[in-house]
Design a protein around this nucleic acid. Sequence first.
DNA 1: CGGCCATGGATGACATGTCAACCATCGATG
DNA 2: CATCGATGGTTGACATGTCATCCATGGCCG
Lengths: 180, 180
Amino acid sequence: MTTTPPPPPASATATPVPAPTPAEPRWLSPDEQRLWRTFLQMQKELEAQLSRQMQSDSELSMADFSVLVQLTDAPAGQARVLELARDLRWEKSRLSHHLTRMVKRGLIERAECESDGRGSFVVITESGRHAIEDAAPRHVETVRKLFFDPLSEGQLIQLGEVATRILAAMQGCPESVPDN
Amino acid sequence: MTTTPPPPPASATATPVPAPTPAEPRWLSPDEQRLWRTFLQMQKELEAQLSRQMQSDSELSMADFSVLVQLTDAPAGQARVLELARDLRWEKSRLSHHLTRMVKRGLIERAECESDGRGSFVVITESGRHAIEDAAPRHVETVRKLFFDPLSEGQLIQLGEVATRILAAMQGCPESVPDN
DNA sequence: CGGCCATGGATGACATGTCAACCATCGATG
DNA sequence: CATCGATGGTTGACATGTCATCCATGGCCG
């Protein structure tokens, strides 16, 4: 469960007058609860499966993968750190830590930026290229099997609309995007 | 990006004959990519917003919250550890670690199980009850604002169907549920 | 030039998860 | 009763994220 009234509002000696709290919360109906729980489970499961597959087939985490994708997309296989952070919508510190680990594993290297003494570039290595080129095909295959194949054309379209609306609802929420 | 062909299959000196690899991977079309990326972003964003809200409004993580919900749902506010693990679909070790932290914060307590010398119960404390009763209303409100409100009745129904299908597609995949 | 704040980035401390042992008890079996 | 495998649970090492802080350089302004 995730959104039930804990117990009935704690032996809530029912104050009929709307309390100082924004009135009685709009609890979820049983149907809504089922839907919400299913949705959450789907999210978790999907993420888990994708990571597991990527990790066991290619020794990469989804995080590694998405960094490498950004780099292969970028000219010369290199990019500025903050540029990566923006594209990935990661916090800069998370990225920095992650890059450190990826360097240790030989997937990328850091390079100085001459035009700006503070900054640094991240460059994909040969080994990194190998890794992602090996991982990508199986990853798409998994994405198809678990996401695209089970859904009809219409459902996919609707789902796009749904995702867009939810994203829109979150715009302007506190840091809908990390500061950096 | 997440599923582009890295670069064009690495100067793939196009072997016309299906290679030992399961033929040419079924790369995503640009439309499919957009959809997939939007979907992923929505997932991440939604999770992030929910956690942030819960954490800043109530000093609880989503994980804490879901443990507490299980406990308030259970008779006498207590449950066996593995029972929790099953319901939450968490690995037992993750749960164990998490419980330890929650005990430290006074949200729950452990209790021995007389009927089975190995096992132990987890019991919600008064403080834990307070915490969740305080958190729940604002959490539902957020879930409504970000998820239910922006979607039409029809979209919700479709989304339920979609989630169900995707879940079905994952059944039988390697450990679609942790062992324990 | 000298001071100052904004930027780009790294770091350390800490919360959270995963994986692989480990350990005690249970229950069946000889 | 002694043994042995399965069960329930904890632990430690390690990967990953978050937050706050620090630090050097860059740009600006007097």
